[in-house]
């Protein structure tokens, strides 16, 4: 199967620090790819390159747009979003003063803006806009229902609990209609029950929408359970790549997480 996202020789430097050192890997469509590694390995930096926050020093990030490969680095954020990449953040970034429902409508902005002809059709209440708006609302309500937040649709997002905010952030990313969903530590701060719910949500969403998921996560049981493919970074380099089973037994990975065994033990 051809890759949906293809990262080649990606290098990102901050002054003298090499945060990502010629990393290459592919993200396959309709599969969950996990990006793991110790703190400071460069995982979030890589996400920031993919979503256009950073301009990489060298290398390429290409997205397959119906057969044509499109270079992502250097594109403004809203173009990357419109190409079909959505992401969530380690620290939650909801629009705190807007309602839960509005957060999901912002995610469908590009479509609604087209339908409303820059708000003009919206103000006039033309039927074409009404239809688009209804569709957007239905979609938002559907995903609110899926993440169990439908009853709180009209409350400001900041009133939700931490776990609910995490789920809303994922729902918002889904509502933007991505082909690649990038989740940055979605289970951070969740208790074990919430983590299990999250795992089944991510799995179900990926299968239901045929969505590729790129996941950064420290919770190894979650990673091993839901990933189809795992990429391991350490100090900015890719040290291993493969199925969960192969990663679990990989010596370099174990060394990176637990430290090198000393001379005698080896």
């Amino acid at each position: 199967m051809t890759a949906l996202l293809s990262i080649k020789d990606l290098t990102m430097r901050f002054g003298g620090l090499v945060a990502i050192d010629s990393v290459s890997f592919d993200v396959r469509p309709e599969a969950i790819t996990a990006l793991i590694g110790p703190n400071g390995a460069g995982k979030t930096t890589l996400f920031n390159c993919v979503t256009g926050f950073y301009r990489p020093r060298s290398g390429s990030i290409r997205l397959d747009c119906s057969g044509r490969l499109t270079e992502l680095s250097g594109q403004p954020g809203h173009c990357i979003a419109q190409l079909g990449i959505a992401r969530t953040f380690q620290n939650i970034r909801l629009f705190a003063n807007m309602t839960v429902l509005e957060n999901l409508l912002v995610a469908q902005h590009a479509e609604l803006m087209r339908a409303s002809a820059f708000s003009i059709a919206g103000i006039l209440g033309l039927p074409s806009y009404r239809r688009a708006e209804k569709k957007a609302l239905d979609k938002a309500r559907y995903w609110l229902d899926r993440v169990g937040l439908l009853s709180r649709a009209n409350e400001p997002a900041q009133f939700l609990s931490y776990g609910q905010q995490r789920r809303l952030e994922i729902a918002r990313a889904i509502c933007s209609g991505p082909r690649l969903l990038c989740l940055d530590e979605p289970a951070a701060g969740l208790n074990s029950r919430e983590t299990i719910e999250l795992a089944s949500l991510v799995r179900a969403v990926s299968q239901e929408l045929g969505l590729a998921v790129l996941l950064i996560e420290h919770d190894m049981s979650l990673v091993m359970e839901i990933s189809d493919h795992i990429v391991v970074l350490d100090y900015g380099r890719k040290i291993a790549e493969g199925s969960p089973a192969s990663i679990r037994g990989d010596k370099a990975v174990i060394a990176a997480y637990l430290g090198e065994p000393d001379g005698e033990a080896a």
Partner: peptide, 13 residues
């Protein structure tokens, strides 16, 4: 509220 996040939602900031 959050220009970067808005851009990621497809808003032309």
């Amino acid at each position: 509220a959050d220009p970067l996040m808005a851009a990621l939602c497809g808003v032309d900031v």
